[in-house]
Design a protein around this nucleic acid. Structure first.
Lengths: 105, 105
DNA sequence: CTCCTAGTTTCCATATTATGAAACATAGAA
DNA sequence: TTCTATGTTTCATAATATGGAAACTAGGAG
């Protein structure tokens, strides 16, 4: 049986990973790892409408991965959990290595 | 503009995170961090049908996070990327800390 | 062989998520 | 004030994901 605590922890973590489970949001996080960007800049860079960019950023914020600060009419987003990107790279490396081993290298 | 490389990397990582974006799959990974389990044991522990457990494990395998080995009619699953769980813990810690800061602690 | 157990796959219904356009809100400039 | 630029929200639709039951596959026991 799954305890209440286990369940809550799993849900918390799944919620965070859900925010990371989209190529555009990964791309945004990588851009934000360089410096702060506003919504319209990220939308422009990615070639998507502002409304879509805003919604993706809102999900990242909801997961606690970014913060926003309003500068006049602009809204700048900053990365709050840079370790996530480092660990993403690490995990991806492990996975790729495993795949190679499976193929006999 | 997003380069082809950036796009592919973002898609690879998003795919990995998508496999992590479900409470049951997080739970399974944590169980597999203890030792190997077969499908029916995990299904029993979680209180879900075997078919559902099998599908979740298949997704984890597809993302390269677990491997399976057949023992007669049983299929045992092993964790291949233990660092992923550390990632989860670290990221969650960072996120929780950020939330506390935002609340003024 | 038949029967049973363990897993996987398929089918279908439901629920969740993503998308773009348009409406809306707001701060600053003219 | 009006106009413009930036963001967010709403809406309808499309695409994915989930869940359970049942069909199907395969290995081992009798």
């Amino acid at each position: 049986m799954i305890s209440k605590e286990e369940q809550l922890r799993a849900e918390r973590r799944a919620h965070m990973f859900k925010a990371l489970a989209h190529p555009m949001r990964i791309y945004f996080l990588e851009k934000l790892n360089e410096k702060s960007w506003c919504v319209c800049e990220l939308a422009e860079e990615a070639g998507i409408p502002k409304s879509a960019a805003s919604k993706h950023l809102s999900q990242l914020k909801d997961a606690g991965l970014v913060e926003d600060s309003k500068m006049g009419t602009r809204v700048e987003y900053q990365l709050t959990a840079p370790c996530v990107l480092k660990l993403a790279a690490c995990a991806e490396g492990t996975v790729l290595n495993n795949r190679k081993k499976q193929l006999g290298f």
